[in-house]
Amino acid sequence: MTTFAPAATASRLDHQPGGGRPKARKSPYPYWFLIPGGLIFTIFFLVPSVMAFYFSLTRWTLFDQEFIGLDNYVQFFREPALASGLWHTIVYAAVTSGLKVVLGMALAVLLTGPILGRGFMRSVAFFPVLVSTIGVGLTFQVLMHPTKGVINQALDLIGITGPAWLVDPDWALLSVALVDVWQGVGLATVIYMAGILSIPGEYFEAAKVDGAGPWHRFRHVTLPLAKPAGVSVIILSLIGGMRKFDLIWAMTKGGPGFTSDVMASVVYKQYQAGFYGLSTAGNVVLFLLVIVIVLPLFWSFNRSEDTR
C-alpha cells in the first residue's frame, strides 16, 4: 500500500516524451505470470518430447537403460509389421484429410446457399465431433458388421454387396478412415462456413453481373477467398489423422493382422509389450513425420500470404 504513490507517478511520467523512467519501475506484465503454466507445460510436455530422442536410442525398462545407438530404428524399419505402420499412417492421414477437405467444402457451400433448415443440418453434422470417439468406434463396429450390420443390410436393399469392412484386410484401414471422416467432417464444414461467410457479398454480386455462373463464382470467388479456411482444415486434419489412436484402437486394434496398424497403435503395442525404447523410437518417427509433412505446408502458406 505504501508503494502506491511512486508507482502512479512513474506510469504518468511514462506518457511524457522523454520522461525519465525510473529503473526500478515494475512492469504491469511481469514475466513470472508465465512460470506456473510454463512449468507444467515444460515438465509434462517439453521434457518428455526432448527426452524421447535420447530414450529412443536405448534399450529401456523405465528403471535402467542401456545405450544401443540406432538399433531401435533399424529394428523398426526392418520389421514389416512395424514399418507398415508408417505407410498406413500416411495413407490414413491423406484419405481422411482429403475427404474432409472436399466434403467439408461441399457441405459448407450447400449450407451457405439458398436453403432451408441450415441450422438443423449444421448442428446435426457437428455433433459427432463432440461425441466420445470410443463410443463412435464401437457403434460403427456394430453398424459395419459384414452380414448383420445395418450398413450392409441397407446396401443389400439397393442391390450392392457391401465389403466385409473391418474384417477384410484390404478394407479395414479405409473403413476406419471413413468413420473418422463421418465424425470429423462437421468441424471442417463449420471452418469452411466461417471462411465463406467472411467473403463480402459484393464479390458474388459483381461476378454475377459480369455473367459468371454458379460454377465460375465458386471456382473464382469462393475457392480462392476461402483459402485460409481450407489451409486450416488441411493442416488440422493431417495432424489429427497422423496422431489418430482411439478410433483405430476401438475399431480394429490394428487388425486384421497388422493391416490397420498406424504409428500411434504401434507405439502403444510396443509399450504394452515392454519395449519402451522401441515404442519411443516409434514416437520419434511419428514426430518427424508430422514435422516433415506439416512444416512445408506452413511455410508455403505463409509465403503465398505474404505475396498476395
Partner: peptide
C-alpha cells in the same frame, strides 16, 4: 516463446517418456 507454444499444437506427445517423468515425480 510463442513458437514453443505453437509446437505444443503440432508435436505428438511422447508417451513413454511422459510416464518416466511421472514416475520420477
Amino acid at each position: 516463446l510463442n513458437l514453443v507454444v505453437l509446437s505444443g499444437l503440432v508435436i505428438p506427445p511422447a508417451v513413454v517418456p511422459t510416464i518416466w517423468v511421472l514416475q520420477q515425480t
